[in-house]
């Protein structure tokens, strides 16, 4: 399989001037998309930057004032807001490694049986959660994990195990949210890692085995380096998914108990579209966008850099 950045290599081999690669052709092919994406990303950002410097409230006829950086100052000095950023960070640093490690272990099992009859059906069924709307997953688990009438607690107590108050206990509610997210997205990591494992040629494995690499060692000396890009890709996709967690919280806990499950996307929604603190909401959104762009660029440069 080719890599992400093959165009460079191909281009290097190519004669520099080809009659049909004129500027006009390039424009006709590439420009519509670029223009569309630029319009949809740059223009809103300008609107939002301007709004974030004001005390504008959507839906109010009160006069709008320029307030400078006050909204940004409010974001970085509000303990509640900092806690919200911290909580979202916690979700990422716990759920992401979990998805990677568990996803990897399951991928190994799938790889072990990949030539057997029926295994492709098993993998497809296993992947189903990834294909579901987040809102459906949230509604379903809100019901299953309901402490009073949910089937999960019932099964646990029937088995003589303690049934925690999944979504109502302030100490564990955020972990329950993570459980739901992890249930939905670990299969994606698995299937990508599985693709990666298939991509390691048998000869390379055999060579490593001949070199006397043990099972554990071959994971770190062979598989991890060879799948660097795959792991980077999962980190990127899963990280984005985790930072964007919204519907799950909206339909299960509404950010509670207390504020223990108020994550970033949910807080942005509340500030901007429930309280209509549009200026403040814009400031949170801009800060979030800057953080996410920096992180994803770092990850992209690190994971996809050429050897």
């Amino acid at each position: 399989m080719t890599t992400l950045t093959t165009p460079d290599r191909i281009r290097a081999q190519r004669t520099p001037h080809r009659p049909d690669s004129t500027r006009a052709a390039r424009r006709a092919f590439v420009a519509p998309l670029i223009v569309f994406l630029a319009l949809m990303s740059a223009v809103p950002t300008i609107f939002s930057l301007v709004t974030s410097l004001t005390d504008y409230k959507v839906g109010a006829d009160t006069p709008v004032h320029f307030v400078g950086l006050a909204n940004y100052v409010r974001v970085v000095t509000s303990p509640e807001m900092l806690a919200t950023y911290g909580r979202t960070f916690l979700v990422v640093v716990i759920a992401l490694p979990f998805e990677l490690i568990v996803g990897y272990l399951i991928a190994k099992v799938f790889h072990r049986v990949h030539e057997l009859r029926g295994s492709s059906l098993i993998r497809t069924v296993y992947l189903l959660p990834v294909m579901l709307p987040e809102i459906v997953v949230g509604l379903l688990f809100g019901y299953i994990m309901n402490t009073r009438v949910g089937v999960l607690g019932f099964l646990l107590s029937a088995a003589g195990l303690p049934a925690p108050d999944w979504l109502g206990d302030p100490r564990i509610a955020i972990f329950s949210i993570m459980m739901i997210v992890v249930w939905q997205w670990t299969p994606l990591a698995t299937v990508i890692l599985y693709g990666g494992l298939l991509g390691i040629p048998g000869e390379v494995r055999e060579a490593a085995a001949l070199d006397g690499a043990g099972r554990i060692r071959s994971v770190f000396s062979l598989e991890v380096p060879m799948m660097r890009k795959v792991i980077g890709l999962i980190a990127l996709l899963a990280g984005v998914q985790l930072i964007g967690t919204f519907a799950t919280v909206l339909v299960t806990t509404q950010g509670g108990p207390g504020t223990t499950t108020t994550v970033l996307s949910y807080e942005i929604y509340r500030q901007a579209f429930v309280f209509f603190n549009t200026g403040y909401g814009s400031a949170i959104a801009i800060i979030t966008l800057v953080i996410v762009i920096l992180l994803s660029q770092l990850l992209v440069r690190f994971a996809f850099k050429e050897d």
Binding site: T147, R148, D165, D169, P257
Partner: peptide, 21 residues
């Protein structure tokens, strides 16, 4: 109050009473 008390809202308040819980 019933289990999961911190998450009770309009909906679960009714359901708890309506099912004798």
């Amino acid at each position: 109050e019933p289990k999961g008390a911190l998450n009770i809202d309009w909906n679960s308040r009714y359901s708890a009473f309506a099912t004798g819980q």
